[in-house]
Deep mutational scan, measured.
Amino acid sequence: PEEVRRLVEELYRKGVSPEQVKKILKKQGIDEREIEKVLRRIG
């Protein structure tokens, strides 16, 4: 979803590592598979 992409990109631009991005967003209840999809697209 758009909102997940925005959150991931925001953290990524701040220099947060992909592993940390995953941890942070998982705590917020976001599906890990969604996060990984976005990270793959960015990375």
Score class of each variant (00 low, 15 high):
20 Q>W: 13
30 I>D: 00
26 K>A: 09
19 E>C: 06
3 E>S: 09
31 D>Q: 05
1 P>D: 13
21 V>A: 04
10 E>M: 10
4 V>S: 02
24 I>L: 09
25 L>T: 01
37 K>W: 08
17 S>F: 07
34 E>W: 04
37 K>M: 08
7 L>N: 03
42 I>Q: 04
25 L>M: 04
32 E>L: 05
31 D>T: 06
6 R>P: 03
8 V>T: 03
20 Q>M: 13
8 V>M: 02
12 Y>L: 15
38 V>A: 08
23 K>P: 03
8 V>A: 08
6 R>E: 08
32 E>M: 04
40 R>K: 15
25 L>G: 02
28 Q>W: 07
15 G>Y: 03
39 L>E: 01
15 G>N: 05
12 Y>V: 14
31 D>S: 10
37 K>Q: 12
13 R>K: 09
18 P>H: 04
12 Y>D: 03
41 R>K: 15
15 G>H: 05
43 G>Q: 15
30 I>A: 03
30 I>N: 01
33 R>Y: 07
42 I>F: 14
20 Q>T: 11
10 E>S: 09
12 Y>T: 07
10 E>Y: 07
1 P>L: 10
39 L>G: 01
41 R>G: 15
2 E>D: 12
19 E>G: 13
31 D>P: 13
16 V>T: 08
10 E>D: 11
28 Q>T: 08
30 I>H: 13
43 G>E: 15
1 P>G: 10
29 G>V: 01
31 D>R: 05
37 K>N: 11
25 L>Q: 00
42 I>A: 04
22 K>Q: 05
28 Q>E: 08
34 E>L: 14
43 G>S: 13
3 E>V: 10
26 K>N: 04
3 E>L: 08
13 R>I: 07
19 E>K: 13
11 L>P: 00
36 E>F: 02
10 E>W: 07
6 R>T: 08
35 I>G: 00
5 R>Y: 15
25 L>F: 02
16 V>K: 12
27 K>V: 07
27 K>P: 05
26 K>H: 05
21 V>F: 03
39 L>V: 03
38 V>P: 00
36 E>Q: 04
37 K>E: 15
11 L>E: 01
23 K>W: 10
40 R>P: 02
29 G>H: 04
38 V>G: 01
5 R>D: 14
31 D>A: 08
23 K>Y: 11
13 R>S: 09
4 V>F: 05
34 E>R: 03
4 V>W: 11
29 G>L: 03
6 R>W: 08
7 L>T: 05
28 Q>K: 09
28 Q>M: 12
11 L>I: 03
10 E>A: 11
34 E>M: 11
14 K>W: 08
20 Q>V: 11
3 E>Q: 07
22 K>V: 12
40 R>Y: 14
1 P>M: 12
5 R>V: 14
10 E>K: 07
41 R>M: 15
24 I>E: 06
14 K>V: 08
40 R>S: 13
28 Q>A: 10
21 V>L: 13
6 R>I: 11
14 K>M: 10
29 G>M: 03
4 V>D: 01
6 R>L: 11
30 I>M: 14
12 Y>H: 07
16 V>S: 08
40 R>N: 15
16 V>G: 05
9 E>I: 14
17 S>G: 11
34 E>P: 00
34 E>K: 03
17 S>Y: 06
11 L>K: 01
32 E>H: 04
36 E>V: 05
11 L>S: 01
15 G>K: 06
25 L>I: 02
35 I>A: 02
18 P>K: 14
26 K>I: 13
33 R>T: 11
8 V>Q: 00
26 K>R: 12
41 R>P: 15
25 L>W: 00
14 K>A: 12
22 K>I: 12
9 E>G: 04
14 K>S: 12
34 E>H: 04
7 L>F: 06
1 P>T: 12
28 Q>Y: 07
18 P>R: 14
20 Q>K: 12
32 E>T: 05
18 P>A: 12
12 Y>S: 05
31 D>H: 05
43 G>T: 13
42 I>D: 06
38 V>R: 01
21 V>N: 00
9 E>L: 14
38 V>M: 05
20 Q>P: 00
20 Q>H: 09
3 E>D: 10
25 L>Y: 00
2 E>C: 02
31 D>M: 05
11 L>D: 00
15 G>T: 02
21 V>G: 01
29 G>Y: 02
38 V>H: 08
37 K>H: 07
39 L>S: 01
4 V>A: 03
2 E>W: 09
29 G>I: 01
31 D>Y: 02
27 K>M: 11
19 E>A: 12
19 E>P: 08
35 I>W: 01
37 K>R: 11
33 R>I: 12
33 R>E: 14
41 R>N: 15
27 K>T: 10
27 K>F: 07
41 R>I: 15
23 K>I: 11
19 E>R: 14
35 I>H: 00
1 P>F: 14
42 I>L: 15
24 I>V: 10
27 K>R: 11
2 E>F: 08
17 S>T: 12
17 S>L: 08
18 P>G: 09
7 L>M: 11
6 R>M: 09
23 K>H: 10
42 I>M: 12
28 Q>L: 12
35 I>D: 00
28 Q>N: 06
16 V>L: 08
14 K>F: 07
39 L>T: 02
10 E>Q: 11
13 R>F: 14
38 V>K: 01
27 K>C: 05
13 R>L: 08
7 L>D: 01
35 I>Y: 02
28 Q>G: 06
35 I>C: 02
30 I>T: 02
36 E>H: 03
24 I>Q: 08
27 K>A: 13
35 I>M: 02
24 I>W: 04
26 K>W: 04
17 S>R: 12
26 K>E: 07
5 R>I: 13
15 G>C: 08
13 R>G: 07
11 L>R: 00
9 E>C: 11
7 L>I: 06
32 E>N: 05
29 G>F: 04
42 I>C: 13
30 I>C: 04
5 R>A: 14
8 V>W: 02
40 R>I: 15
28 Q>P: 01
18 P>N: 08
34 E>I: 13
14 K>P: 02
2 E>R: 10
42 I>H: 06
